[in-house]
Structure formats: C-alpha cells, structure tokens
Amino acid sequence: MSGLLKLKTAAELRQTYLRHEMFPTIFCDGCGLGNVLNYTLWALDELQLDLDRTVFVSGIGCSSRLSGYVNADGMHTTHGRALAFASGIKAAQPDLNVIVFTGDGDGSGIGGNHLLHTIRRNMDLTVILVNNFTYGMTGGQAAPTTPIDSFSTTTPYGNIEYPLDICALAQTLGAPYVARWMINQPYPPIKSIAQGIQKRGFALIEMLVPCPTAYGRRNGLKQLETIWQWYREHTILIDDYEHIMHFGSPEERAALHDTIKIGVFQDCERESFEARWATLVEQVKL
C-alpha cells in the first residue's frame, strides 16, 4: 500500500455500498460488528472494487448478518459452512472477489474442519473472522475461543478449556495472509483488509470485537467504556511484543502473559488453488 488513504465521507459511503431498507442494524449497544462492516467498506472503496463482481458469503451468527447489509450479491448459508459455499463459488467463477464474513463459533467451532481444509487448499478467499469470544446470537454459550476461567451460560463456574488461537492455526497451515486486529483503531484494519483482498490466496483477518451483552455481562465488562478499554489494555502489537520479549526485563515479560497479540502475522506468496487448477487444465487438455 502506498500513499495516504483518501477517504470519502460516511454519507457517500452509505449511498454507494449499503442496502438502506436493511438499516438500522440489529447490533447491540457497544457491539463492534458495525465497525467491521465499516472498515470492509472503506477497504473496498480504497481498492475501487466492482460490487457486481464481488460476492459476500456468511454463515450463521451475529457476524453473519453483515453480508445482508451490503448492496452486493451475497449468500447467507448454513451454520459453519460459509467457507464450503465460498469455495464452490470461487471454483466455479474464479474471477469473482469472494469475501466471507464468519464468526468465531461459526468459523472455528462448528465449521472448524472447513476452515482447516480451505486453508490447506489455499482457495483465493478473503475471510473476515469476527472473534467475540462467545456464541452471541444463541445466548452466550462458550465458544472454542472463550478465554480460560471466563464465565458463560454453559460454563457458569468458569471455563476450564484452553482457547483456540485461530491466527496461529492459520499460520501453521500456511495461509498466505494472516492478521488480527482490534476494532478501536480504524486505519490498520482498513489497510489490512485491502491487502487481504489483493492477496492471491487465502487471507484470514481475525477481528476482535467486544460483545458487552453475551460475553461482557457475565465477565464484569458490561459497560461499554469498560469493555472497549479492556480490549485496549489486553492487546499488543506483534512488533512491540517481540521487542519486549527480546530486550525487556523479566517483570515486563511476565506482564505480557495474558495479552493478545495483534498485527500482521504472515504475509507471503503461495500458489492458489485457482492458479494450480488452471495449470492442470492446460496440462491434461487433449
């Protein structure tokens, strides 16, 4: 990315990209899902993507309602299967831009196996995985990403299971672009989503989103200010993290124990499924 972002006003953005009959959004006070949509649209605007050649796919959950608000073709699919449907779209029409909105329960819990195999195949998709640490829409059950010792409707005495680090998983499987961002800083996620869309191959952008209603209420983070401040205090940029781990004192390193790393974790090139498929078709042609 070069140069500064030239931003339109939000009024111009909503004229171009949104379905007005769907608004206002259904999200709770203090939920950051609207911000995720906001940043995705700024990224689309920065790249000047043709909305007629862009498809939004989503599964089930709070985050999966996002595809309904965009004035582009979209699919609202079955629980956890957004990536399977998106792979199908991409395999049939490789020139479409496919953007997937999925949640932590939908993408890594119910559809965890689809996540593994879509990354393994390296489909050219941009996956915006919204992580709010819980199954929000169904009433706050513990998700695979719920932090240890936190409370939910299914873990009323505290969660005893270790959480899943989705970015580390994607990195291990060799996804070409892996990033994680918190929504209280607008510019890094916008640039990151734009990079992810441009990347030929699987791009996973995990967004940490506060959920004051289903998660915060049971964990002492009911107030909006408190939960947004919690995220600000418990996230650290990967560069700062590595710097402190390398040069910091033992106390400084111990203080980083329960912080969440944010930043771009992996940005490399890997031949995508579509490219390899096109080569194969050329090879075996009679």
Partner: peptide, 15 residues
C-alpha cells in the same frame, strides 16, 4: 473524523 470511522451504524458524517 474518528467518530465517523468508529461509528458502527454509519450514522455520523463530519463536515
């Protein structure tokens, strides 16, 4: 324009 960028409901425009 931070309020405009952070608004989850696309409601604010700064002019």
């Amino acid at each position: 324009r931070l309020c405009e960028l952070l608004c989850p409901d696309f409601a604010i425009t700064v002019m």
